[in-house]
Design a binder for these strands. Structure first.
Lengths: 249, 249
DNA sequence: GCATATTTGTCCGTATGTATA
DNA sequence: CTATACATACGGACAAATATG
């Protein structure tokens, strides 16, 4: 009677998420098997193929991907360190199910880092501002063609580009991980389409302000963006937790 | 002729660092063997027992600590993800040797995060300011008794306490890792004593400014601190790299 | 430049302890 | 409470890559 993290009927439902993977290749290139394993699982998790709460049983996943359990466990350690999965002592690893506290923590981190990065826009590394513009254009193109999944991807890449204004590799890496976590939250929302759509225009506005050197205004717009997004996600999570024991298709 | 990371006579000199460890305990408590392994190695690395560049050969370390090679590799993945060690494909894992670029990157990260955290001092979580004061007192006590190693520890804990003003667990974790990396740089310096000593007083000053609510002045003092420390470390690294092929006691 | 020894990368089988039905 | 399933950790094996003489 510890926790009921898992919907209790959904464990080991990873056949769906891992089905279309050409995993049966015990061959290694430059990166090494473990790193590629982590890439595959990370992609599956962030793309929504393995929704929050699903258990990643060693034997099943190892067989599905054509690797040994030892190798897989090494990849699990990486993902656990990135907080994409949780490692419960003698129970196994599960795709993380972020709660309201996680959302608040992620957004305090984002507010601090992203706003400070924008304030540093003057002395940003060359090409950083251009990258922001490029991502905004990609987002608008995706929105025009109603490719909402790509819109969500572009949104996260936009904010990665914002962080890149600070010019620190470690900061970039950290925020990339945090934004990957945030994707888990997106997949817990009702319909991600509606969520991302209004932010396309707001991102474009922020980008324009940064380009024009109006950093204070840009920071203000960014703060408003983050506050709105956080609020929306928190209400989304609250709704989800009330309809707890329903059947999940 | 790739790199000369290792002093070429110092590889596998981990007998010194791992000698006094009660590693021969194949018993697991709450945390799990892998996590404890990582703790042991992390401590050894940050305390200077395993200086930058030393190779951590799987067989030797596994035997010294009384664990299997597979288990040890899982711990290595964690440390590699924390950037305390580097994993060279088919060559092994080595204690990281930070270069000037790393120092610059670490300090841009610190400038951004720590200054922003101080600016958030008004709405900091309760007890955060008191913790800063406590660490400053500990540092002054250690300095009075010439326990320079403890002074260095207190210095890093001081800055962790600064970051805690932001009130984000993820930010705390990230900066704890960055500061652990910074310890590697300290151990590359000539004498760490001289390095830490002057900062005891400066930390106390910053703490006082934070307590009095003079955040702007506190940020200014913190920035000056970080700039000076970075400059000092960069010159220290430059000196070290010029006397490259000397015998190392 | 080549042959050999060492080390890593990956796999398998297995014993033990833990959690759950 | 027993039984089953699973994670944990170990040890050995082999191929591949690297380092050494």
């Amino acid at each position: 009677m510890t926790q009921e993290i898992i919907p209790a009927g959904k464990r080991l439902a990873l056949s769906s998420g891992l089905a279309g993977l050409s995993g049966a290749r015990p061959l290694l290139d430059r990166t090494g098997t473990v790193a590629r394993l982590a890439d595959i699982l990370r992609a599956q998790i962030t793309e929504g193929g393995l929704p929050p709460g699903t258990q990643l049983a060693e034997h099943a996943v190892a067989e599905a991907l054509g690797v040994s359990r030892n190798t897989l466990r090494e990849a699990f350690r990486l993902l656990a360190h990135e907080e994409l999965v949780v490692h419960e002592p003698h129970r196994g690893v599960f795709v993380r199910t972020p709660d309201a506290g996680d959302v608040r923590d992620i957004y305090t981190t984002r507010r601090l880092v992203e706003c400070a990065a924008v304030r540093n826009a003057d002395s940003a590394p060359s090409g950083a501002v251009a990258e922001i513009r490029a991502v905004v254009n990609a987002a608008q193109a995706a929105a025009a063609e109603q490719r909402w999944n790509d819109v969500g991807t572009a949104d996260l890449r936009f904010h990665s580009a914002i962080v890149a204004l600070a010019g620190s590799r470690r900061l970039n890496d950290m925020m990339r991980r945090v934004l990957a976590e945030l994707r888990l939250v997106f997949h817990m929302m009702a319909d991600p389409h509606r969520f991302h759509e209004p932010y396309v225009h707001r991102n474009a506005e922020i980008a324009a302000l940064v380009e024009r050197g109006e950093t204070d205004a840009a920071v203000g717009a960014l703060l408003a963006y983050l506050d709105d997004a956080e609020r929306q996600l928190l209400t989304g999570i609250a709704e989800r937790s009330t309809q707890s024991s329903e059947s999940i298709t």
